[in-house]
Simulated scan of single mutants.
Amino acid sequence: MKTYISILRGINVGGKRKILMKDLKEIYQNLGFRNPVTYIQSGNVIFETDIEENKITKKIEQAILEKYGFEVPVIIRTREELLKIQSSNPFIQAEKDKLELLNHLHLTFLGDIPTTENIAKAEEIEEKINDKFEVIEKDVFVFCEGKYHTSKLTNNFFEKKLKTKATTRNWKTIEKLAELMQ
């Protein structure tokens, strides 16, 4: 039995595409996933399953479409992947820097590993903005000099440039999810 986290994109934002976490938990239970735990209203669900990894995302997306009538992109990571992500942030140089940086750090989860060519196209924007990012496998570590909502490094930007689905969480959420998965 493996432990996973699913990260849903674009639910409960501005009162649109509303899914209650208790209902989402029930969907996961109905899919046969064990011990689902939700964290905050943005669609983070930790669960256990023996189902093949490449089938999990489609099962969740289909179940949400059937229940709510709208599509929700879903990205999953294993416990091991999330813990590796937590310890691999290139923008945290030392523990003393961590607290100062925390409000500026975000992680964009990608559906697939982007091509080197697409990463190079995305990196062209860094010359024009103060925010920074680094793509490592299926994740984008983001440093925003200001507030994330004013950054050009949005889900839409990464989806367009990297040609894969994307959803972003702030670093405090990443830390809490890793703690819950321990």
Score class of each variant (00 low, 15 high):
135 V>W: 04
115 T>G: 11
113 I>S: 14
140 V>H: 04
116 T>W: 13
153 L>H: 00
100 E>Q: 08
148 Y>I: 04
86 Q>L: 15
153 L>S: 00
105 L>T: 14
108 T>V: 07
157 F>M: 02
110 L>P: 01
155 N>Q: 03
165 K>P: 06
79 R>D: 12
134 E>W: 07
140 V>E: 04
135 V>D: 03
99 L>M: 10
87 S>I: 13
127 E>C: 12
78 T>A: 03
150 T>I: 11
147 K>M: 11
103 N>K: 14
138 K>F: 07
152 K>N: 06
160 K>R: 12
82 L>P: 10
156 N>A: 15
135 V>C: 06
85 I>Q: 09
102 L>M: 15
82 L>Y: 11
106 H>E: 13
144 C>T: 08
142 V>H: 04
153 L>P: 00
96 K>E: 13
99 L>G: 13
75 I>Q: 08
129 I>W: 00
94 A>T: 14
147 K>N: 10
91 F>K: 01
113 I>V: 15
126 E>K: 15
136 I>R: 11
103 N>M: 12
88 S>D: 09
96 K>W: 09
93 Q>K: 14
121 K>F: 12
76 I>K: 01
75 I>L: 13
79 R>H: 11
107 L>S: 08
163 K>Q: 14
147 K>I: 04
156 N>C: 13
75 I>M: 09
86 Q>F: 14
73 P>L: 04
146 G>Q: 07
84 K>G: 07
129 I>L: 00
160 K>F: 13
141 F>H: 08
76 I>L: 03
144 C>P: 02
142 V>N: 04
150 T>Y: 15
128 K>V: 00
133 F>Q: 03
77 R>W: 01
106 H>A: 14
78 T>M: 04
126 E>H: 07
116 T>M: 15
76 I>G: 02
97 D>A: 03
123 E>W: 11
158 F>H: 08
129 I>V: 00
94 A>I: 05
99 L>N: 14
78 T>E: 02
139 D>I: 00
154 T>F: 03
132 K>C: 04
